[in-house]
Design a protein around this nucleic acid. Structure first.
Lengths: 202, 202
DNA sequence: GTCTATATCCCGATAGAC
DNA sequence: GTCTATCGGGATATAGAC
């Protein structure tokens, strides 16, 4: 057994290009998502070539999500008393600016409910970690520990649900809605004194 | 041009059987959902036989959701001061008791974000109607009109998001969580004085 | 490049309703 | 007796895996 040689620079760059192409293709795809062939051709490869880097289709899409996490590692400063609001606003704004990402994320989350799915661990660990982080934050903001637990769960749920509504109606301003939910969860009911933003078309 | 003859009793019954079989197959399927063949064989037909009734796959799954709506037409009495809590608890309990339904619903909602999808109208109208109904309810419960608007959106979002978390961890008690969110949205923060229910494993 | 699985369309056969 | 709802068969296109 020799040491594996690692990836060549060319391979590293191609990996990046495939991930970008996969996300772009997802944004333009129908309900079944883009085919491996379509993604491959958009970067000048065959499906076999993409398979070399990512093995199969689910692995590729999981890599897209992980790359998103890597790029989104920068967050607002934690000292801010409005920290949670800023975080949820940041998340919503980022996601909305990348077409296809929200659709991919929800699709994968549902698919990953199967314990045999490659992304099952990614999602279960992600949700556990996020719930724990938000819970800690809420306790620091003065929320009682029993409340912080279910409120963290609710905050996360609202963020996901708002994104589903946004998929169906992209004119919705879910960043503003998410901030309002965050304030409600952090500190109880708050009057909507700002002018209502986003689409009010029902 | 003559009047169409309508469906035969045999056809009506077979339609029902196919819808039931489709939901059952979805519960046991992998991330891509069940094949038309698998559904067809479970009711003693070929895939073309199913195609005769529903045209294509998406139409069949849309019919499953519409059948669910038809069966779920019974709701708690509106006079109750805890009406919203009872409704969300009813929804959560019903959905959790039908394996595959939640997965199908979220999958379809995401797919229907494409305006060309057969279920696009179903979902956009559904969400508009639900937002409007909840908003009316909140106003009746004393919530100010500007607040009622975004709070209805948040309530709906939380319900959807909780179901996604439940898919990934079916031990979560999302009915209790949904009721707590409903109370928070209706009347401000409330102490979690009941014992924590559901899985606390993180 | 091949193999298998799947969805969809066109066409035909049958049998039961009117 | 006629018509059509209810199917199945064949052909075609596409996609994923090996």
């Amino acid at each position: 057994m020799r040491e594996p040689r690692g990836r060549y620079p060319k391979g590293v760059e191609m990996r990046e290009r495939i991930i970008d192409a996969a996300l772009a293709a997802y944004a333009a795809s129908d309900s079944r998502g883009p085919s491996l062939r379509a993604i491959a051709e958009s970067v000048g490869l065959t499906d076999k070539g993409v398979g070399h880097y990512f093995g199969n289709r689910d692995n590729l899409f999981l890599a897209v999500l992980q790359e998103r996490d890597r790029l989104d590692a920068v967050w607002p400063e934690p000292g801010d008393p409005e920290y949670l609001s800023h975080v949820v606003e940041t998340v919503a704004s980022r996601n909305v600016s990348r077409p296809g990402l929200v659709k991919l994320y929800i699709d994968m989350a549902v698919a990953a409910s199967d314990p045999a799915h490659v992304a099952h661990g990614y999602f279960t660990e992600r949700y556990s970690r996020l719930r724990r982080d938000i819970e800690t934050l809420l306790v620091q903001r003065g929320v009682s520990e029993p409340d912080a637990r279910w409120k963290a769960q609710a905050m996360l749920a609202a963020a996901d649900g708002l994104q589903i509504q946004w998929l169906l109606d992209p004119t919705l301003d879910i960043a503003t809605a998410a901030v309002r939910v965050a304030r409600l969860i952090e500190s109880g009911p708050v009057a909507a004194q700002e002018q209502p933003a986003g689409s009010d078309a029902d």
